[in-house]
């Protein structure tokens, strides 16, 4: 073949094959992380930022390495994740149940609309003082905030889902004499499930934010509290290490929830990525 005298235009160069290589994405991603760490390190070593307040990447990562083998660290992680899980599950169950009840009736849907739209945007952190008054610095404080914040995320998605139920499918089910429960089980539930999973995925991220917030601000035991303690005690490096740890937990939750979504919805024709949240 004589592909020599190729007309090299800008476009031809831009679409150079190596950047389309399947491994190019992940490799560049790793390169990006390394680059980021290098910039961080350089900025602190050259004194561009004050290392007293912004320790070098190597120092923080070394501390993180120490944390990872420390029982105290894992105990804090455990406490945070416990409130995260309990909060998320409680919110999930409550929101799903309520969502199905409201969603199954046009009347309920219409009458609750304004109230839901009013309660949903209330920032959950507004409840912090109330939580402190009611529960003090116990885990219940965290739970109250987590549940409140995650509840709306899931409820809204479940309501979208129940609204999406095909009316023809519903009529068919009715005409075959399927009862209320059977209709929920075989028509409403499969339609709503993708929305529910999306809601859970969004709520999982929100729940982590609120778990850390409650610990940070109220002082409920967990990673957030450790961060606050290190900050007030002036232990800068451990604080940074914990912040990085929370970020890693966040990434892990995001990846985990996306995998769950993929797994549960494998049978679903249109993997819903485009739901407006």
């Amino acid at each position: 073949m004589h592909v020599t005298e190729a007309v090299t235009t800008q476009r031809a160069r831009r679409a150079s094959p190596w950047s389309q290589h399947p491994l190019a994405g992940p490799l560049l991603g790793v390169a990006g992380i390394v680059l980021f760490l290098l910039i961080w390190e350089a900025a602190t070593r050259t004194g561009l930022v004050n290392p007293k307040f912004f320790p070098p990447a190597t120092v923080v990562l070394a501390q993180l390495g120490q944390d990872l083998v420390s029982a105290d660290f894992w105990a804090s992680v455990g406490l945070t994740m416990r409130s995260w899980l309990i909060g998320l599950l409680s919110a999930g169950i409550a929101a799903t149940a309520l969502g199905f009840i409201i969603g199954s009736s046009t009347f309920l849907r219409r009458i609750t609309h304004s109230t839901i739209e009013f309660l949903r945007p209330i920032p959950s952190v507004a409840l912090i003082p109330l939580a402190v008054l009611l529960f003090g610095i116990k885990m219940e404080s965290s739970l109250m905030l987590i549940i409140y914040a995650s509840f709306w995320q899931i409820l809204i998605q479940v309501l979208y889902g129940t609204a999406d139920v095909d009316s023809v499918a519903m009529d068919t089910a009715k005409s075959y004499g399927l009862g209320w429960w059977a209709r929920i089980r075989y028509v409403v539930w499969p339609t709503t499930l993708p929305y529910l999973i999306t809601g859970l995925r969004l709520a999982a991220a929100v729940a982590l934010i609120l778990a850390i917030t409650a610990e940070l601000v109220i002082g409920a035991p967990g990673l957030g509290k450790e961060i606050a303690l290190n900050q007030s005690g002036g232990s800068v490096v451990p604080m940074y290490s914990l912040v990085v740890a929370t970020g890693l937990i966040g990434v892990a939750i995001n990846i985990g929830m996306r995998l769950l979504e993929k797994r549960v919805l494998r049978w679903h024709s249109s993997q819903r990525g485009d739901v407006i949240v």
């Binding site: 004589h2 592909v3 020599t4 005298e5 190729a6 007309v7 090299t8 235009t9 476009r11 031809a12």
Partner: peptide, 9 residues
């Protein structure tokens, strides 16, 4: 002109 040919004009 949306795609560059491999050869020819």
């Amino acid at each position: 002109g949306l795609l560059a040919p491999t050869s020819g004009t």
